[in-house]
Design a protein around this nucleic acid. Sequence first.
DNA 1: TGGGGAACTGACCGATCGGTCGGTCGGTCG
DNA 2: CGACCGACCGACCGATCGGTCAGTTCCCCA
Lengths: 184, 184
Amino acid sequence: MSIRDIARQAGASKANVFHHFNSKDKLYLAVMRDACRRSEAVLTNMLSEHGDATARIAEYIRQHLKLLYEDAERSKLVLREILQSNPRRGQELAERAFKDDFEMVTRIFSEGQQEGQLAPHIDPALAAFVMLAANVMLFQAQHVLRHLPGASFVDEPERYREMLLDILLNGISKGRSAGTTESA
Amino acid sequence: MSIRDIARQAGASKANVFHHFNSKDKLYLAVMRDACRRSEAVLTNMLSEHGDATARIAEYIRQHLKLLYEDAERSKLVLREILQSNPRRGQELAERAFKDDFEMVTRIFSEGQQEGQLAPHIDPALAAFVMLAANVMLFQAQHVLRHLPGASFVDEPERYREMLLDILLNGISKGRSAGTTESA
DNA sequence: TGGGGAACTGACCGATCGGTCGGTCGGTCG
DNA sequence: CGACCGACCGACCGATCGGTCAGTTCCCCA
């Protein structure tokens, strides 16, 4: 996307864009900051709600997916930046934008451990990472996944959420109590 | 990357590049095809080895990560294409490049179910997806993850593999037998 | 009322892009 | 020998890019 296009869509002149944002990179960073702030606000509101650990995890999966899909353009922008950042930019993004978010998500799992619902030997950061990775990949690679054999869950968000939660909580080994989560 | 740069690195003239590949897009597709073929070869060889289901899953996680990191440039190229493809391109990629690979990975899990080691109610495609998503995200977002609180597993591949396998197999709920996998 | 600074503009710049063109060169047939 | 062909090249093209600049318009406050 060129600054010419941006200016045209904004109904302003290209020079005016440079008047408000000194360079294209500054403009880009401003857009990124705005995108992150909106995501953060949504997730912070969501996390204030309560329930037991599994209910909060289920709710987070739901809300995170909803957030990704409802503002798809913004999500793609942020994810593209995360997924192809170099070391320096990656550190910048982590510390300035995603650190707090990730810490909040991790806390869902560590609190679940303190409450005795989740196994204490699990690394809460890794659990959070696996959950986020699944959601992000589902959203980001949906156009490829849709045509892969057996991946029909791409277009069945409810089934996907239920099954992901089941794998996350109970694993895939035989022996654990199977089946659907008895959510509302 | 411009064709000028490509030609310079190849020690040829820019015009010669256009002589062999009619357009930049044709050249790009040729590179993609080559990249996919190499990945496919590595994974096919790996999958011919045997063992029980959990051992094969563990081995796949290891080999897949190794493949991603050992040819990082190629991996980034392919993943970037997957992660930002539009619907039409996504379908093309899925059917022409990734269908067989994904089917092979899914089969690891469905065979594990037939052998009685994995829970029969699990969707093998979703299990494969979660595993792949974790690995891909670890590789692709490593520069961000490295600076996130608690995500030290990014630079400890052995611990990461062990813990991911544990979560995948046993889940994070309390009650399941904890701990390290008794691999060799 | 007028002066000053922010908001805003069109014209322009150098650089780089993908792609084309006319032509050279070495080898291979009839 | 000469016709032909694919590999290969330097020079060039139009388009587009991010960015600059001199100048105009607008608005607020002394």
